[in-house]
Computed example of a mutant assay.
Amino acid sequence: MSAENISKKRDVHHVSRGWNLILNLIAGIFAFLCVFPFIFVVIISLTDEKTLARDGYRILPAQWSLEAYRFVMQSGDTLLRSYGVTILVTVLGTIISLIMISLYAYAISRKSFRYRRFFSIFAILTMLFNGGIIPTYMVVTQLLDLKDTIWAMILPLAMNAFYIMILRTFYITSVPDAIIESGKIDGAGEFYAFLRIVLPLSLPGLATIGLFSTLGYWNDWFNALLYIDNPNLVPLQSMLMRIESSIQFIQQNSQNSAVSMAALQSIPQDTSRMAMVVLATLPIIFAYPFFQRYFVQGLTVGGVKE
């Protein structure tokens, strides 16, 4: 390629300083619009309840208050225990989910696997049909005997057919067969090739599935509602939902009891709801940079030499 052609190619992809400033400004505004709702939730959670009732929702409230967080923190050890249970369930569940999904997706992505079509259809069928809540409850509590155990919140979410299909497609499109075959020529077995060759090249896909699984486990409260009666095993989302239910119960019965009316007036209703959202969301927000690091790392690992 001549120097003139190289110069023309650079001119085509060159963006002037003015356009670069405009595009960065548009991207910054869009990023701010994405982040602002959560910032506004934090502001509301720090607003005095009486000020909120009088002035409504404002970016700069007339009076700040930590009463909502004090109300939520009154549970003390229960809140910390719920955080610990949720973190344990999320970490263990994500690891188990990644192991099971990555192995299943890799098997059905290989053309040499004789039963790949059968297991692909088997996974897709679970996306279309399920046994329902009652049979699932019977399997978990009676057949597997997982009621009031940490595994009742982990195993039901460990396999996801949709994630399997995503990772299967990623293996097919992003992991060349030539790399796997070259490893086998050098003496690598199927499992060794998967660990040493496929997984390093699949970090973007694994990070995506890991993020989905982490969000699913962190936000799950339904399994705890079904299977957990032990107060020491209640996860964060379920505990916050119980606090919200208690507030609603007091609201509904406030007219029937002077005591309930006094309790209702002492509860920061709207701000406490926002405080619950903040407490439940902040840890998962801090997890995003770690997944982002693996996204970038995975995109720069390996390739087929020509």
Rank of each mutant, 00 (worst) to 15 (best):
F113E: 04
I101N: 05
Y137R: 08
G132E: 11
S82W: 07
G84A: 12
R110G: 08
T94Y: 12
S109A: 14
S120V: 02
F113G: 04
Y83C: 05
Y104N: 03
Q142M: 11
F119K: 04
Y115F: 11
L146N: 07
K147Y: 11
L146Q: 03
G84T: 10
G93T: 08
M138G: 09
K111Q: 13
L98Q: 10
L103M: 14
L92M: 11
F113M: 09
Y137W: 13
Y137V: 08
S102A: 12
S97N: 13
T141W: 01
R117M: 10
L144M: 15
I87E: 04
T90R: 13
M138H: 15
V89P: 02
L103P: 02
R114G: 00
G84S: 15
S112C: 01
S102L: 03
L143Q: 09
I124Q: 01
K111P: 09
V140C: 01
P135A: 06
I108P: 01
I96V: 14
I101R: 00
L144G: 10
L143A: 15
L92K: 11
G84L: 05
R114K: 14
L92F: 10
F118N: 01
T149D: 01
I108V: 11
V91I: 14
S120R: 03
T90P: 11
G131L: 02
A105D: 01
L80Q: 13
L88S: 10
S120L: 03
V85F: 00
V91E: 07
V139N: 10
T126W: 07
Y83N: 10
Y104E: 00
I101V: 07
P135G: 01
D148T: 00
L143Y: 06
V89H: 07
I99N: 05
T136W: 00
M138W: 13
G93D: 05
